[in-house]
Every structure is written in C-alpha cells, then in structure tokens.
Design a protein around this nucleic acid. Structure first.
Lengths: 112, 112
DNA sequence: TCAATAGTTCCATACTTCCGAACTATTGAA
DNA sequence: TTCAATAGTTCGGAAGTATGGAACTATTGA
C-alpha cells in the first residue's frame, strides 16, 4: 500500500510552494479544493478532463511534496485537502495573496 | 542593438510571476534590486559570483519577460529595476507577500 | 473469483535549464 | 581609426523535467 510522505510544516519551502503554484493546472487544483471546502479525489479535483491520469498523478505528487496538500487514502480513492493552516503558519499571507490574484489572472472566472 | 521587450502591465501573468520567482536565484535578484532601491547592472545584481554569465543573462530574460523587471541599456551596462508599481497594480499584495516570506525562507540574508 | 475503478510507476519523447564558447555592442586609450 | 577591455547575448550540447500511453497495484462490489 502506498503511504504518502508529507513534509513537516517547517520543511515547506517558498521555492517549492511557488513552483508548485506556478503551474496553472496545479493552481486550479488548489483553488478547486478550497472552493469545495474540503476533500476531493484526484479526478474530482482535476480542472480539465483531458489531462492524462499519469500527468494528474504527477501534479498531485508535486503539490504533496511542496506541502500544499494532504493526501489520505479512503477506499479506492484518495482524499486531498489543502494544508491551508500549515501554509499560513509557514508563510503568512502568501497563499491568500496568490489565490486572491488568481481570479484576475484566469479569464474564465469573473472578477468579483 | 538589442532592445528589450517588456510586457504591458495587463499582460503580466500570475503563472509567469510565480514561476520566475520560484527560482531562488531570481528571487534573490529581485530582493537585491529592491534593497538597493533602484537600478543595478546584471552582474552587480547577481547573488552569487559563480553563476555563469549565460545563466545569469537567461535569469534576467525570464524576469524581464515575466514583467518583474525593467531593463534599459546605459552604456556598456544594463540597468535593471523591479517593476514594483506595475506588479502591485496587476496583482495587489502579491510581491510583498512573496518577498516578506522570502526572509524566513532564505537564511543567508538578514532581515532589514 | 472476476470486473471495474482510482491512482501509481515505467518508459519514451519533448521541452527546459545550465554552462562554456563564440559573438555583439559600447567605452576608452593609443 | 584601431585595439583591448568590459557587459551581455546567443548558440549548442549535456543534464534535468514534464507529458502521456501502457502496464501495474489496491480496493470495492457483484
């Protein structure tokens, strides 16, 4: 059984977080997880159905290793949740600043 | 003569900014430029003397194309300045959130 | 036991990044 | 003008990274 390695909060790096969120797909995954206010499976959290499973799996691995999400296995699915509190503790204001500005960056979503 | 292409403020993308700053060297370049409160040449802004010229040139190109810095030619040197106001206008709070947290991430530089 | 589903791992291809070497542009001196 | 020095850019190859298809593992449910 695959058990996931998550970095401790203190081991989360700024470079890791930024490079993880620099990919639009991963940024949308994080936004989706937060909007759904909790856990989603990998496929449910995918922002685009045409992405290959292996690619998606890789994106989740990057997010996990960057410390952005927590993954736990529940039955056949994986449950993913954003480690919002950990990120906030490590880099105060960072995640919110990025997510708030992701609205004005992504054309499909209307600016509030 | 090489003339530099800088994106308009509205064309600056979040992904571009994040991926540019996800590299520790580029992040340190931006921090250095801001600390020096103005313009620096490429070599003067280099955080590490062992980086190859070509690599450094590439980092500056990435920062320029991401809209993070403005480069102008002055004699034999290039003058680089952070487009802080443009970034702030495009993504309010983003650059400050990243730079503020870069202090807790990068041990070598003292907090100002 | 078998089929279906959710993810992971492996591999080949395509794209990036890094550096040294060669090049361009400007300055300043002879 | 010519030559050397300096600051960056561009080119090309080696090493690393991303993508997606195929094969694999783990769990569920019939």
């Amino acid at each position: 059984m695959v058990q996931f390695v998550h970095p401790a909060t203190k081991d989360i790096t700024l470079a890791g977080v930024l490079s993880a969120l620099a990919d639009p797909i991963r940024l949308q995954i994080v936004r989706g997880l937060l909007q759904e206010s909790g856990c989603l499976s990998c496929t449910a959290a995918s922002p685009c159905p045409t992405i290959a499973k292996s690619t998606l799996s890789n994106h989740f691995r990057v997010l996990r290793e960057a410390g952005l999400i927590q993954t736990s296995k529940k039955g056949v699915e994986h449950q993913n949740a954003v480690r919002a509190a950990d990120i906030e503790a490590r880099f105060p204001g960072l995640l919110m600043a990025i997510l708030a500005n992701s609205l004005s960056d992504a054309p499909p979503v209307a600016v509030g």
